[in-house]
Design a protein around this nucleic acid. Structure first.
Lengths: 220, 220
DNA sequence: GAGATATTAGCACGACCGTTCGTGCATTTT
DNA sequence: AAAATGCACGAACGGTCGTGCTAATATCTC
């Protein structure tokens, strides 16, 4: 009791439990990316996955906890899809550019069937106080800090001008990326991704110390 | 019957009906801007407004029709708040800049309590086929065409370079504006509006024939 | 006035919601 | 072998949902 540290070495029961939790969350993340966190319903998840409603419920304790767990699961997926591929890249302008491309590929490839998970749920909860908004705000700050960190790295590497407003650059890049998503989905087009890519490179070039660096060629 | 053209000159009955419809829609638009079109419920609207559920229902015929009417109502409010104020302005770079400022003021002032109505509902329905998505896509195209039209006006006035990519400019401006909204709401900050404004001016300046035109001074 | 017409109210329906409860079952611990 | 643990089940709870029906009410035409 002192430290509930042990479910022995390997408990097949809890292992099975976590497996179902994962199954539920995999589906939950899909639904939420298309229809929002409000559209998550325990009964529907149960039906979709051939489980019992009470079983699904028991795995999370409440609907809100299910929603929070869904956000956490989405964060991991996002991180795997967008951040991991460029993790090994050394700081610099190239890394920042690769991040943009990685993000666009992530939205384009429909890693979440509804496009960017966070675009959807941020819009859903940005004006509704509560634990969900708090969690989403934290995720946002984390994402923002990541981009800002890469921008800082590029400046420290001497590839962005010393007086560049890194916060403004971060804001602009995120805006361009995020906005490609709804436009591509709503109009069923691919061009928004190209425009976002072009515009992002353009913005970086504007504050680059060497606008002719291979990472920033205009390519028309 | 030949032409159902007449509900006489002034029929107090239908007038009263339209009045309640307006009342319902005013509330519906508020709710939807914060919680989305899915969160609209006939019973809730009735309770909120002291009407009967069936009364509200009868005014629209179906939930989907209520949602579509809500979108139309929001479109009018948006147009009044953002477009009307600059309608008299002659085409040119200044008008384009004023549009950006008008939009930012609209989001900032919470014309809709949940920030930009369309940001919310586009995210909600951009991945869900159906009449609602179609209506939202049409609205988007209209908005896009408006911005593009102003950009074209600015170029035709000789204030934007002839070879400027107006589509890219339009995409970028919209992205900057729309993205200020969720960030301001989610983090409860005002700075995103300032960043969006600065970034929009910056983008326009980049393709302006005379970057020192008063409409585009950097102001720091 | 009478009668037509359009808006609103009252009520009931079936479906689904989140949640609670008691139970069965497989696994781990003793 | 017995006890304890943890997951999943089915049934049921009170609510709310959208949507029909029918009746009452207000306003029009005549």
């Amino acid at each position: 009791m002192v430290a509930g540290a042990s479910t022995s070495r390997t408990d097949g029961r809890v292992q099975r439990g976590e497996e179902t939790r994962r199954t539920v969350l995999r589906r939950a993340v899909e639904i939420a990316s298309v229809e929002g966190l409000d559209a998550l319903s325990i009964g529907r998840l149960a039906t979709d996955l051939g489980l019992s409603k009470s079983g699904v419920f028991a795995g999370f304790g409440s609907k809100e906890e299910l929603q929070l767990a869904t956000v956490r699961a989405a964060r991991r997926i996002f991180s795997d899809a967008v951040l991991d591929p460029i993790a090994a890249e050394p700081p610099g302008l190239r890394k920042l550019r690769l991040l943009c491309e990685s993000w666009l590929a992530y939205s384009r490839a429909r890693v979440f069937p509804g496009g960017c998970f966070f675009y959807e749920v941020n819009a859903e909860y940005d004006a509704r106080p509560g634990p969900l908004r708090d969690a989403l705000a934290a995720n946002w700050r984390e994402w923002h800090a990541t981009v800002l960190g890469l921008a800082t790295g590029a400046r420290d590497a001497g590839e962005l001008r010393a007086d560049a407003d890194l916060e403004d650059i971060t804001f602009t890049l995120i805006a361009l990326l995020e906005n490609a998503n709804p436009q591509a989905l709503l109009l069923d087009e691919d061009t928004p991704y190209e425009r976002a890519h072009r515009a992002a490179l353009r913005r970086l070039r504007a504050d680059a110390t060497d606008p002719d660096t291979p990472a920033l060629r205009a390519d028309r």
